[in-house]
Design a protein around this nucleic acid. Structure first.
Lengths: 239, 239
DNA sequence: TGCTTCATGTGCGCCACCGAACGTAAGCGC
DNA sequence: GCGCTTACGTTCGGTGGCGCACATGAAGCA
């Protein structure tokens, strides 16, 4: 976890052209993000934007009666806090650390200033935003049409893509909150995957044994989203 | 339907500052949009962006097995084709005319040029985009947690807000495609609403009798989205 | 070691929605 | 008026996920 804290482990930061990178590097601040930390509440103002390197953040909506649903996942490929530069300064969603790790953050005003230079930064961030929109839309479709089993696979794969290893530290209860289903439902679905030899499960630690198997079992949603990310945010540098 | 075709019936166009408006007006082209017309296919390139005045457009995703789900509704408050200026030039979604009417359109290149001036147009369009994002996210939550009855109410209200009258020309089959449910389910839900005296239904024509009743019956999703639109896009001029 | 807490497994009744099949009646073309 | 298409109504068995209650077993802590 104490990997060399290079901001360029975040792909957006890594994609910055040299001049912007030189301006930014001094303003970036490394932060540790423990599991469960709330980066911002629904409707709250945001003081920073976050560029995860090893952490994963979930954007989720909470309904009046307490039920929740994850709208999108953000990892080292993205940025948390798009509504800052989109102009709304807040959203009805909540941002929660789903997998502990590090991130770099930037204060709100510098972020807006950089965005408003209307150069490559603006276009990079807007392309990322479009990718995020695709993920949200696909989540809506997936919620409507696909089985819990498939959704769990999709979710595991999306998380896996944002982590260095094939291991997730994550209780079933937490996953159920993300997917917006019962904990027991996750237990059952996870059990099936374990029986099929795709994962191993033990008290909050999921080890993926057969990634290809998960991909076969999931719905199309995973691939649609992944392709759109690849199309909109071509890899600039290796991780 | 042959109301005076004033571009400013579209709220985004109406919000343009005078100088931009003077530049734009000559480039806007009035188009009739019949029910069912596909403005762009999933993954297809877009030649125009559309500013509906009396028409309503649905953004929907179609899954591999033919099932569909509406992600968002765009009417005279918005613009169809955000991915043009977001930088992706296409999306995995499809845009279909859900309620026939008129729209003004602008060619792709002029739209990009205006956006890249990085003035008030850019910020206006980004604020709209954020509102659209909220609608998508809330749709995802609604798909997960709320009953068909509630979703139908939400959908009717969202459509109603984008129409001049209290009448919708819309078959149950079409609605079921939008909501991503069975046609029979819509029949049943609509029947309940009719029994409750909220709507009247007759062969593709829905008359809303009690708008307040619909608002009471729907889930919170409707109001969350509406408030966010009002917050991000304050009414500039009366319709 | 014994106690507590937390993560996971399991069983049961329930209900909304699904899939399919079929009936009915309104509108339209001729 | 006749027949066709279209839109809506209804039924029925099946099932995925819900809500609840409770059992088990692993970690942690004293």
């Amino acid at each position: 976890m104490s990997a060399l804290p290079d901001p360029k482990a975040n792909q957006l930061l890594a994609s910055l052209p040299e001049p912007e990178w030189q301006r930014w590097r001094a303003k970036l601040e490394l932060v540790e993000m423990p599991l469960g930390q709330v980066l911002y509440e629904a409707g709250g103002t945001m003081k920073h934007v976050y560029f995860p390197t090893t952490a994963i953040v979930s954007l989720l909506y909470v309904t009046e009666n307490g039920a929740s649903a994850e709208i999108a996942i953000v990892g080292n490929e993205g940025i948390v806090g798009i509504s800052l530069f989109m102009g709304g300064h807040s959203t009805p969603s909540r941002a929660v650390v789903q997998s502990a790790g590090q991130a770099y953050r930037l204060k709100a005003q510098p972020m807006k200033d950089e965005f408003n230079r209307a150069g490559p930064v603006l276009h990079l961030l807007l392309r990322y935003t479009q990718a995020l929109i695709t993920q949200m839309a696909q989540t809506a479709v997936c919620n409507r049409h696909h089985s819990l089993d498939q959704q769990l696979c999709r979710w595991l794969l999306l998380s896996l893509d944002r982590l260095p290893a094939l291991e997730l530290l994550m209780t079933q209860d937490l996953i159920s909150n993300m997917l917006g289903v019962r904990r027991e439902g996750v237990t059952e679905a996870a059990h099936k995957l374990q029986k099929a030899g795709l994962i191993r499960y033990a008290r909050g630690r999921i080890t993926v044994l057969d990634r290809g198997g998960l991909e076969k079992r999931t719905c199309e949603c995973y691939e649609v989203v992944k392709k759109e990310y690849d199309r909109l945010l071509p890899a600039q540098l290796a991780t």
